[in-house]
Design a protein around this nucleic acid. Structure first.
Length: 379
DNA sequence: ATGTTC
């Protein structure tokens, strides 16, 4: 126990076992982020990887100043888990794929009332609601493969017979607009806690969180409608967001970028589309800034995936995974960029968190079908 | 990551 917690310097910690390889560039970015004025403590998770200036898979605690660039453009991005009324023991992947169809277009007129009932403020990005987006976003049907804690599962209202839906999406163009407008004005300097800029950003940030959560709900509802089933929410947790926190007795701001909160109940930590996902009970721990990993973490940069992946697998082969699941991804770029080989094995991430005493396993899920996009070209 | 666009 405890071998997975590495203190690199005063205030800079990485949670990763010896087996979990983390790129030097990501560590460098983490250390650079720690140098920001007011930054008190940073923690890299086992899925830490390089991002745009700042790393992904980390939590940052600052006092007196806030840094929107640390949250990134996809403010409010997160994972929501849903229980469907479909029986996982009697499923036909063919039928599911056919019924699901393409869910990339904006929701139609028949959704107007349901969207209005959510009471979202106007943002100008309404046409993105109910759509998954690109990058690492997905919707995945899963079934429970191994149960570690049946009592917690029953509290959550799920068991092996339920086909589950995991939705990973965020605030789409809205979060991007908020970050861009902020960076245009303040670059990477951030701002003081007691400032008009801060109040303005926090207001926009709250809108983006609401938009992203509504987006995951609408994606799920759309999928239930297409699959002709019903569904119920089990978990919804963001991994890109800002929250007030008290660390070591001092009030400040916790920035999470690709890090899930450990103080809000059970979480899903998903592997790549060809790997298992884990349902876990996080253990709140100040030393890890009340955070855990949000997924497997990239191993290969997007740009190098096409060459590296295509030497092993054809595009056709990538539509099926080694766990027997299928993949809906008509976009060739995404098909290669999001290949299971481009990600770390989820087991090493889970083992690192377990070894650090940060999670308790509840169940392991295996993918049935991962939906990315039905469109050939989204770029 | 992204209503991006020569």
């Amino acid at each position: 126990m405890g071998n997975s917690i590495q203190h690199l310097a005063e205030g800079v910690t990485v949670v990763a076992s010896a087996k979990t390889r983390i790129e030097g560039k990501a560590i460098q970015q983490l250390q650079n982020s720690f140098q920001l004025p007011g930054m008190r403590r940073v923690v890299g998770m086992p899925d830490l990887h390089p991002g745009l200036g700042h790393p992904v898979g980390a939590a940052f605690f600052s006092v007196g100043r806030l840094y929107p660039a640390l949250i990134g453009n996809d403010i409010g991005c997160g994972m929501s888990l849903w229980r469907t009324s479909l029986d996982s023991h009697r499923l036909s992947p063919d039928k599911i794929e056919k019924r699901l169809g393409c869910i990339d277009d904006a929701l139609g007129e028949d959704w107007r009332e349901r969207i209005a009932s959510l009471g979202l403020p106007e943002t100008g990005f309404e046409s993105s609601l109910g759509t998954i987006g690109g990058g690492n976003h997905f919707a995945e049907l899963q079934q429970i493969d191994t149960v570690s804690c049946s009592s917690t599962l029953s509290t959550l209202g799920i068991d092996k017979k339920h086909l589950l839906l995991l939705v990973h999406s965020g605030s789409r163009g809205l979060g991007q607009k908020i970050l861009r407008e902020h960076l245009d004005r303040f670059q990477h300097r951030g701002f003081a806690e007691a400032s008009d800029e801060c109040a303005d950003y926090l207001d926009q940030h709250a809108k983006a969180l609401g938009f992203a959560k509504a987006n995951r709900l609408l994606i799920a509802q759309r999928i239930f409608e297409n699959l002709r089933c019903t569904g119920a929410p089990v978990i919804d947790a963001e991994h890109n967001f800002l929250a007030p926190a008290i660390i070591a007795g001092t009030a400040g701001w916790l920035h999470r970028k690709g890090a899930a909160p450990a103080d809000g109940g059970p979480l899903v930590i998903p592997g790549s589309r060809g790997d298992y996902s884990y349902l876990v009970e996080p253990v709140p721990d100040e030393a890890s800034l009340f955070s855990v990993a949000h997924g497997a973490g990239r191993k290969w940069m997007r740009g190098e995936c096409r060459d590296r992946v295509s030497t092993r697998s054809s595009a056709q082969q990538l539509l099926r995974t080694s766990l027997g699941s299928r993949v809906v991804c008509a976009n060739k770029h995404l098909l290669f960029e999001e290949a299971p080989e481009a990600y770390k094995a989820i087991e090493s991430v889970i083992e690192s968190l377990q070894d650090a005493g940060l999670i308790r396993l509840l169940a392991r899920m295996k993918p049935v079908l991962t939906y990315k996009t039905g469109r050939e070209e989204s770029r």
